[in-house]
């Protein structure tokens, strides 16, 4: 499979510290024993889906600068599928054992919560198949509870119970997806769990909400 990364013809190899090949490892020698474990067992490297395949070079002063072949399809689900093909090609060529994702990285949001769940289910099926074919595993999954505008005032700590419930339902689906893919961990990141001003915030209540949210999740 050499569809999206033709410039890298084969898997990156360990060539030792004197190698001048920029597409070779100089120290990472997967099966080399360090103490009782191999380097791969010690380091357990994972590729982050969001940055590596979804990142488009946008910063606060300018838009897209990367023209990724796998992001070109106009239909969001086609784009997600091509992105997944590119991801597994990348994992194999890099020779990495693990990857990590947010639910919204691997599957686009639909126009309803139910549609978003359906999209995730479809993409999890495809990921499961590719994991089986390649031996690449999921280190952890997580729910993106910060990108959508409904989470501007928090997800678990959002003052609106409807939004808190939506976030919890999203976590339920992300945990299910992670389990389905044999994920070895599940991560919570509270990027929007906080406050901007005490003038509108009940800090104690928000912490109680965050705790309740996490209790619900296991």
């Amino acid at each position: 499979m050499s569809k999206y990364f033709p410039a890298v013809a084969k898997q990156i190899q360990y060539e030792g510290k004197d190698s001048k090949n920029p597409l070779a490892f100089r120290y990472y020698n997967k099966n080399q024993k360090v103490g009782s474990k191999t380097m791969a067992e010690h380091l357990r490297f994972a590729v982050a889906w969001w940055h590596t395949f979804m990142g488009d070079g946008t910063d606060m002063f300018g838009g897209t600068s990367f023209q990724r072949e796998w992001r070109k399809a106009s239909n969001p689900m086609d784009r997600a599928k091509k992105t997944m093909e590119a991801a597994f090609e990348f994992f194999q060529k890099l020779g990495v054992d693990y990857y990590c994702f947010h639910d919204r990285d691997i599957a686009p949001e639909g126009d309803s919560f139910a549609k978003s769940c359906k999209n995730l289910e479809t993409m999890v099926e495809m990921a499961k198949k590719l994991q089986k074919e390649t031996g690449v595993k999921l280190l952890w999954g997580t729910a993106n509870l910060f990108g959508n505008a409904i989470y501007t005032q928090g997800a678990a700590t959002n003052p609106d119970a409807h939004i808190m419930a939506t976030a919890a339902a999203q976590v339920k689906n992300a945990i299910d997806a992670t389990k389905e893919l044999g994920g070895e961990n599940y991560v919570f990141w509270g990027g929007r769990e906080g406050y901007e001003t005490l003038l509108n915030t009940d800090l104690k209540k928000e912490q109680e909400k965050l705790a309740r949210f996490l209790h619900m999740a296991f």
Partner: peptide
């Protein structure tokens, strides 16, 4: 757990390679 590269290339590093 493991070491997850929560990292991205710079805006000017435009090639897939």
């Amino acid at each position: 757990g493991g070491l997850n590269f929560d990292a991205h290339v710079r805006r000017s590093s435009i090639d897939p390679t």
